[in-house]
Design a protein around this nucleic acid. Structure first.
Lengths: 143, 143
DNA sequence: GTCCTACTTGAAGCCGACTTAAAGTCAAGA
DNA sequence: TCTTGACTTTAAGTCGGCTTCAAGTAGGAC
């Protein structure tokens, strides 16, 4: 059993965030010591899982829907595959964008919009955007 | 010269967003017809550029700092390269995540956290996060 | 028994990127 | 000239994901 303070120390995730996640149904404390939440040590893995989902652009609600509070998947494998496919599209898009930036850094054209190569990359980027998800960066979870 | 309504029709970007971008210094109308904003046709490319930046996880303020209002880069090439490198790290992270999801879809282990392969992928994801940027999806800009 | 300190609660606040609402303006067509 | 309707303005609202605040509580050291 880990006291919430210990979880904070181990993972770097603030207590306020842990409470927020609990409120959202992403995480469950396994007990209390007085008022204090106590977690079993699986919480560290679960937080990593949540961080992973956030990094992938899933909302907390989506993540809550994907995994039971113990981290075991609640969803069918097909959905996971679908999400993986979505990620693939995102990766493709970001890759094109990265190439655009590298090209912009090297291209001598006065305006990048005047450069055919850049315009082609640009088109790739703007067309490839998906309707779901919004990758965000959060502090790394220490495991 | 394009009336704001025409820009909306051509790009799919709402008028409110165009005004917001102007307020933020990302975009300038080249004139007015009565009260109505008029744009030169370069606006379409600029909007695509902004969309590109957003997709890459740059904030509007960052984008405003990167390009003059006509779309020509205002920044040094080194910064572009730096951003490209950041994107590279993001791509690496998302790729690991995609692999994790695909693995989760295929792995027979009861909890993914119990699977060594999954844990390895997970570690890759959580360690690779960067401090800046938060890719968001917006509606594609029609060019 | 008292005090310290780390926790607790609920509510409010914050940030970015917009969107929406309410009231006003104005060019163009009948 | 009058009406229409697409625009204008400023201000406030929204949404997700937290953080911060004020006030309260309780376990453990003394």
């Amino acid at each position: 059993m880990l006291d919430i303070g210990e979880v904070v120390r181990r993972t770097g995730v603030p207590a306020s965030t842990l409470r927020y996640y609990e409120e959202k149904g992403l995480l469950a404390a396994s007990g209390r010591h007085g008022l204090r939440r106590q977690y079993d040590d699986g919480v560290v893995g679960r937080l990593a899982l949540i961080a992973m989902g956030r990094a992938a652009g899933f909302s907390l609600d989506e993540i809550a829907g994907m995994f039971a509070s113990d981290g075991t998947p609640r969803i069918d494998r097909g959905l996971l595959t679908t999400k993986a496919d979505e990620l693939d599209a995102t990766i493709t898009s970001l890759t094109a964008l990265r190439d655009s930036l590298r090209h912009a850094a090297a291209c001598p054209a006065p305006s990048h919009l005047a450069c055919p190569t850049f315009r082609r990359l640009l088109a790739k980027v703007t067309w490839n955007q998906q309707p779901t998800g919004k990758p965000r960066r959060s502090a790394p979870v220490r495991m």
